[in-house]
C-alpha cells in the first residue's frame, strides 16, 4: 500500500515540473518583450528596465527558471499589473468564494446524481429512468451560461426571489450552485446507472438474492457498494471539471471568485496574475487526480497490488 502511494506520488513530480515549466515559459511564449508586458502599457523605459532586472530576464534561461521556482516556493508571485496589489493577496481573496461554491455544487450534484442513477438502475425503464437519461443527454449539450441567464431572468428579474449575482448570503448560492452542479449531476446519474446495471448482473448479487436477503440489503449492501467504486473516481474528476465550469458560471453571476479573476486578468493582459492562476489551477488538477488515484487504491485492493 505504502509502495503504491509513494510510486503514485513520485509519478506526479514530472507532471508538476511540466506545469511549472509551462507557467514559467508562458510569459516568454508571448510575442514581444516579457518585461514590457509585465510592466504594463503605461510603464516608462526605466520601469521596464527595472522589471527586467527584478525578474532577471537578462540572465540565462535556466537561471531564470531556478529563480522563478525559488520565489514561487516562497509564494512571492509578483504584483498585479491591474490593481497594484501583490498577486498572492488577490488570489487569496478570491479563493474561498470559488471553493465554497464548488463544494456546494459538488455536494448536491453527488447526492442527486448518485440517487437518480441508483433509482434508474434499480427500476430500469420506468419514468425516472427515462426522464433522468433525457436530462443527462441534454445536460452535456446545454450551454450552462445560457441556463444561468434564464434562471436570473426568471428568479431574479421576474419573481424577485434571488439576487442576480455576488456572494452575500445563502440565497446568492442557489442559482450559481445549481447551474454549476447540473452537468456534473447529469454525468453522475448516467454513470451511476450503468455501473449499477453492470454490478446487478454479478454472481454475488444473484447469490445474495437467492439466499433470501431482503431486496433492500441486496441493493444497498451488495450492489451499491461495489457500484460506488467507479462512481467515486468520476466524482473526483467531476470536481476538477467543476472548477473549470466555475470560470464561466462566475462570470454569469458576477461571483467574486478565481474564475472571474482569471477572465478579467486575461482580458486586461495582467500577466503576473495569469501566470499565478495557471500554476494554481494546474496544481489543483494534478492534486485532485492524485487524490482520486489514492482513494481508488484504498477502495479497490486490485489496483495497489498491480
Amino acid at each position: 500500500m505504502l509502495g503504491y502511494f509513494l510510486r503514485r506520488l513520485g509519478g506526479t513530480i514530472p507532471v508538476l515540473l511540466a506545469v511549472s515549466l509551462f507557467a514559467f515559459g508562458f510569459v516568454r511564449l508571448l510575442p514581444g518583450d516579457p518585461a514590457r508586458l509585465i510592466a504594463g502599457p503605461d510603464a516608462t523605459l526605466q520601469d521596464v528596465q527595472a522589471v527586467r532586472e527584478r525578474l532577471g530576464l537578462d540572465q540565462p534561461l535556466w537561471q531564470q527558471y531556478v529563480r522563478y521556482m525559488a520565489s514561487t516556493v516562497r509564494l512571492s508571485l509578483g504584483t498585479s499589473a491591474r490593481s497594484g496589489q501583490p498577486v498572492l493577496t488577490e488570489i487569496g481573496e478570491r479563493f474561498m468564494p470559488t471553493f465554497n461554491l464548488s463544494v456546494v455544487a459538488m455536494v448536491w450534484s453527488c447526492i442527486v446524481g448518485v440517487g437518480l442513477g441508483v433509482l434508474s438502475g434499480v427500476k430500469r425503464g420506468n419514468w425516472i429512468d427515462q426522464g433522468s437519461m433525457v436530462v443527462a443527454v441534454s445536460g452535456i449539450s446545454f450551454p450552462s451560461f445560457w441556463l444561468g441567464l434564464l434562471l436570473i431572468d426568471l428568479c431574479s428579474v421576474r419573481l424577485g426571489w434571488l439576487p442576480t449575482g455576488g456572494d452575500h448570503d445563502w440565497k446568492s448560492y442557489v442559482m450559481p450552485a445549481f447551474t454549476l452542479g447540473l452537468p456534473a449531476a447529469a454525468v453522475m446519474a448516467r454513470f451511476t446507472r450503468s455501473a449499477f446495471v453492470e454490478v446487478a448482473q454479478e454472481d454475488y448479487v444473484r447469490t445474495a438474492r437467492s439466499k433470501g436477503l431482503p431486496e433492500r440489503v441486496v441493493i444497498w449492501r451488495h450492489a451499491f457498494r461495489n457500484a460506488l467504486i467507479p462512481v467515486l473516481t468520476l466524482a473526483g474528476l467531476q470536481f476538477g471539471f467543476l472548477l473549470g465550469g466555475a470560470i464561466v458560471i462566475e462570470t454569469v453571476f458576477s461571483w467574486p471568485g478565481l474564475g472571474r479573476l482569471l477572465v478579467e486578468s486575461v482580458s486586461y493582459r495582467d500577466y503576473p496574475v495569469i501566470q499565478a492562476e495557471i500554476l494554481l489551477f494546474s496544481t489543483e488538477f494534478v492534486l485532485i487526480n492524485l487524490l482520486i488515484d489514492l482513494l481508488y487504491a484504498v477502495v479497490n485492493p486490485e489496483i495497489r497490488l498491480r
Partner: peptide
C-alpha cells in the same frame, strides 16, 4: 496531462 484539464 491535457485530458486532466477541463477544455475551457
Amino acid at each position: 496531462v491535457l485530458l486532466a484539464f477541463p477544455g475551457i
